[in-house]
C-alpha cells in the first residue's frame, strides 16, 4: 500500500470529491471554458467572474468524471477563488500535481491536470458579448 500522503483515496481528496468547493454556476460570469479528456471522457467546465483589475472574484466548476478529476477541480477552485489571474499564469502543471498531493501514475496525472488546463484557458476566454461575434 502507498505511504500516508501518497494514498490516492485519502480523506482530503474524498472530501473534495463528495463535497466539492464551488460546484455550480458562477453568477454574472465573465469568462468560461470547458474541456474533456478524450480517452476517458472526464469533463470540466470553469466559470469565472474577473473584475477590471484581473481579480477572479468568483470561480465555479462543473463536470463529470473520476474522483481525481473532480477533486482536483475543487482544490484548484478553492485555491484561486478571489485571487489574481497572474497567479494562475504562474501556476505550473507541477504545482497542480503538488496541490493535489497524492502520487499519480502518468495516466492519471491527466485526470488531475484537466481542471488546471481548463482554468489556464478560461482566464483567456471571455464570454462572447451578444452581437459582437456577428460583426464583420
Amino acid at each position: 500500500m502507498a505511504a500516508p500522503g501518497e494514498e490516492l483515496y485519502q480523506d482530503r481528496i474524498l472530501d473534495h470529491y463528495e463535497e466539492p468547493y464551488h460546484r455550480g454556476d458562477c453568477p454574472d460570469c465573465t469568462h468560461v471554458h470547458k474541456d474533456a479528456n478524450p480517452l476517458c471522457g472526464d469533463v470540466i467546465r470553469m466559470e469565472l467572474r474577473i473584475d477590471d483589475r484581473g481579480t477572479m472574484k468568483e470561480i465555479y466548476f462543473k463536470g463529470d468524471g473520476c474522483c481525481i478529476s473532480q477533486a482536483a477541480a475543487s482544490m484548484l477552485v478553492e485555491k484561486f477563488d478571489g485571487r489574481h489571474i497572474d497567479e494562475v499564469k504562474k501556476f505550473t502543471a507541477e504545482d497542480m500535481l503538488e496541490l493535489f498531493g497524492a502520487r499519480l501514475t502518468p495516466n492519471r496525472q491527466k485526470c488531475c491536470l484537466l481542471s488546471w488546463r481548463v482554468l489556464q484557458a478560461a482566464i483567456f476566454s471571455p464570454v462572447e458579448v451578444k452581437g459582437i461575434g456577428d460583426r464583420g
Binding site: 483515496y9 472526464d42 473520476c66 474522483c67 481525481i68
Partner: peptide
Amino acid sequence: IHAHDVAQL
C-alpha cells in the same frame, strides 16, 4: 463511484 476509480481500486 466513477468507473475509473473502480478500475484503479
